[in-house]
């Protein structure tokens, strides 16, 4: 069916079955490849996007339920939290293979939008669903603290 979705500030016409996960519309149809596929069952977080500012797993979000909501992907997010997170990630060289990192960053932005000064415990709870097979967790924690400091400054 033909649908219109709002993504990264634009309205895009798409053609997809209503059960198609938003992830595959974003990647295959719109060719926005910053958002990754890791598991397809909401168990890794690689596909995290923001829907009306909230981190969501696009692999289990049927495109038909998105409606009018604003979708934002790693490809264009530029809120102050996003800039702080990306800056901190680069300062601390968090990434290894990098494949999970779009999702990690989208989640971290969500965390800092809700909680300006997260503790290690807050970070672990919020980020627990984002898997990193390279195990960059140690630096993810440090980078979220650093991003909080950047935002505070």
């Amino acid at each position: 069916m033909a649908l219109t979705i709002k993504i990264n500030g634009e309205s895009r016409e798409i053609e997809a079955d209503s059960d198609t996960p938003l992830l595959w519309v974003i990647r295959d149809e719109l060719n926005l490849t910053g958002t990754k596929f890791g598991c397809g069952v909401a168990a890794c977080g690689a596909c995290t996007v923001h829907i009306d500012g909230q981190p969501r797993r696009s692999c289990v979000t049927p495109v038909s339920v998105v409606g009018d909501a604003e979708i934002t992907t790693i490809d264009s997010i530029n809120t102050p939290e996003a800039v702080a997170v990306q800056t901190a990630w680069q300062e601390l060289d968090v990434v290894q293979c990098g494949y999970c990192q779009s999702g990690q960053i989208m989640s971290a932005i969500g965390l800092l939008s809700e909680n300006k000064k997260p503790s290690d415990g807050d970070i672990d709870t919020y980020m627990g669903g984002n898997a990193c097979r390279c195990a960059t967790y140690h630096r993810i924690r440090a980078a979220i603290h650093r991003a909080a400091d950047i935002l505070e400054a």
Binding site: T33, G34, I74, W89, V94, V95, G98
Partner: peptide
């Protein structure tokens, strides 16, 4: 020394094979 792949991998720009789309491609 900053990693060479850090900026692309924090902005979603890094290209993996999974991100390749070429004309007339079937999945």
């Amino acid at each position: 020394l900053p990693r060479k792949d850090s900026s692309d991998k924090t902005t979603g720009k890094a290209m993996f094979a999974m991100d390749v789309k070429v004309p007339n491609m079937l999945y």
